[in-house]
Design a binder for these strands. Structure first.
Lengths: 347, 347
DNA sequence: TGACAAATTTGGATCGTTCCAATTAACCTG
DNA sequence: CAGGTTAATTGGAACGATCCAAATTTGTCA
């Protein structure tokens, strides 16, 4: 039954032209006569021809497969799903397809999937690196002339482009907001200290405190796993301080939720007895009780931006590494205590 | 600088063997001498050789590209993101890579991405179809011998395999639960009537009512968009009935949330004055107030199952269409009114 | 040691496309 | 109508792997 794939030669034969002509039609060359073009197109439609991009790439020696690789560290996280959607949008409308793989923070899986993608001939790689990713991990890629863009987590030392949110400005804005509400003892809670993101956010905290005329105190910084459980631990530790804090900016929303848990565990109500600000604006932030004041980043926008950058570098053939930071904004809800007698009050 | 890609010939030359031998090493053939094998491997490592799967597939005439295509209708939806992660897991550990594209329910985009994936030579397709997908849309694929598995939404009439959750049993269980709580006038709210999923769930509703000894009444079924807004509309309509319902099973969680909104709008508290059950168990279901009683499906599990089925069909060369339904379970929380004086009470 | 089998290795030919140089057809123009 | 452009078309020869049949080396045994 399966008489094998239909090739340009079949088309050529059926249309009474040579394979070269069919090839020209395929690439929309202006050299071919309008009449022949339409006849060839008709035959292709009739026979259900499908272009074999693999064969074409082989001849064209690799570079332009019109495939890009996308690697994310945690697709179950809504943030990264949104990011992927943003990437998908621009990739799709540029006529590319994407490999997409999830690493679950496993650096081994990451290495594997990237290797696999290379074998399939990607013309660019967009990656949100797994935790302990080394800058050198991308060396072979860039040596082979494959543009790489890292997103969300920057990779200090790597000569690759990056698109990250403005962590510094975001946390600084959060601190400023809390300060404007009268808070003086503001802690910075959560996050692993060995990551670039942590450093940037901590830096924002430091800057925010300084700008508000508050003293930066090492003791007010409590790191922890960037998770709900980590947040609970962190607030517990922070409450042991002699000079008890009255507000916290958290590494991310998950930590912030954990902080709320921890506060309740000691009979304090977040938003009323203690101010909490998160980072990310995950979907639950608006429906939680109290609704979480947080720094919103636009993951889909980041995805789009990163994909654009990557495509641009692919088209340019060879481009310099470029660092883009995308804007963030403070979303004031209830957990910071700023909203006065909020309308919706659950009985 | 870029002296072009390194090929088997370069390896052969450097290792002092023929390209054929290198090829045999590549495929792990037992024909080659252990000594030569390790020498070749060493050279490959030294020169940083990367296998060109495209070239290989060309010779092997397409079939086994070790790429599968994954198409989902809405990746921003956490449900589908989880599904994709499940797929990714088994695809990855089978040594395949996946194209992943989002259609945003656009049937045109869907057609485009599938066409694009075909050009790149996928050896199987896993798709959660966009709304108005026709059974015939996959004809060319299966004609070309490319296995197709649809997931989440079945496609009546299409000769493709499917993996869907047990919609019927799920809704029936929800009805049974409500009936056991003493409810007699139970409505079925939300969803578009022209979809297979709707039919299955409605069927489950009918079966559940009958099993509980309650009468099925057409008027108690109110369809609407499967969204939060749709849910609000639906409950509004349902409340106009002479015999007012006291409980609702909803098409999905989004509808259920909308129903809660609608109830509050008329000063009724879900879980207290009216029982609500959803379907899907989205992430917000547990943090919402009141926490939503719902039918949990395991999207990641579905993804894994679907991917397994697809891979199996790919390996089998040609397999019969198979229909798999995956189990669901009722998760009792607060919105059905079953939980007595739940522990956590927000002040 | 010669003959034969087993173990290894190896040149093409080939997959479906693109690209180049060369050919053919069509059209001017003096 | 010869000579010169321009417009269309067309055979190979690649691209980087696989696979087959054939060649080579090695091992075994009478």
């Amino acid at each position: 039954m399966t008489k094998g794939r239909i090739t340009v030669i079949d088309i050529a034969k059926a249309a009474g032209v040579s394979k070269s002509t069919v090839s020209l039609v395929l690439q929309g060359s202006s050299l071919v006569n309008e009449g022949t073009r339409s006849k060839v197109n008709a035959v292709m439609r009739d026979l259900g021809y499908v272009y074999n991009r693999g064969a074409a790439n082989l001849r064209k020696s690799g570079a332009n497969s019109r495939i890009i690789g996308v690697v994310v560290n945690d697709l179950t996280n809504g943030f990264f799903a949104e990011l992927a959607v943003g990437v998908d949008m621009v990739v799709q409308s540029a006529g590319f397809v994407q490999f997409l793989s999830n690493t679950s923070e496993s650096i081994d899986r990451q290495r594997e999937v990237i290797a696999s993608m290379r074998e399939h001939g990607i013309s660019g790689l967009l990656v949100s690196p797994a935790r302990a990713t080394e800058a050198t991990d991308f060396k072979p890629l860039i040596a082979a002339g494959i543009p790489v863009v890292v997103v969300v987590r920057s990779l200090p030392g790597a000569k690759v482009s990056s698109v990250v949110s403005d962590n510094r400005a975001g946390i600084a804005a959060a601190v400023a907001h809390l300060a404007s509400l009268g808070h003086k003892r503001i802690t910075f809670l959560g996050g692993f200290p060995d990551t670039a993101v942590f450093d940037e956010r901590l830096d924002g905290y430091r800057a925010g405190m300084k700008a508000a005329g508050l003293e930066f105190n090492e003791a007010l910084v409590v790191s922890s796993a960037p998770s709900r459980a980590g947040g609970a631990e962190a607030i517990a530790k922070a409450m042991l301080l002699a000079a008890r804090p009255t507000a916290a900016v958290c590494f991310n929303d998950a930590v912030a939720f954990g902080v709320c848990d921890g506060l309740r565990a000691r009979r304090m109500e977040p938003g009323t007895d203690f101010a909490v600000v998160g980072f990310d604006d995950v979907i639950e932030a608006q429906t939680a009780v109290p609704a979480l004041t947080t720094i919103a980043v636009d993951p889909q926008g980041m995805g789009r931006r990163a994909a654009q950058l990557l495509l641009q570098q692919i088209n340019a053939g060879k481009a310099e590494a470029e660092a883009v930071t995308t804007g963030v904004r403070l979303v004031v809800r209830e957990s910071c205590g700023a909203s006065q007698a909020s309308g919706r009050k659950t009985a």
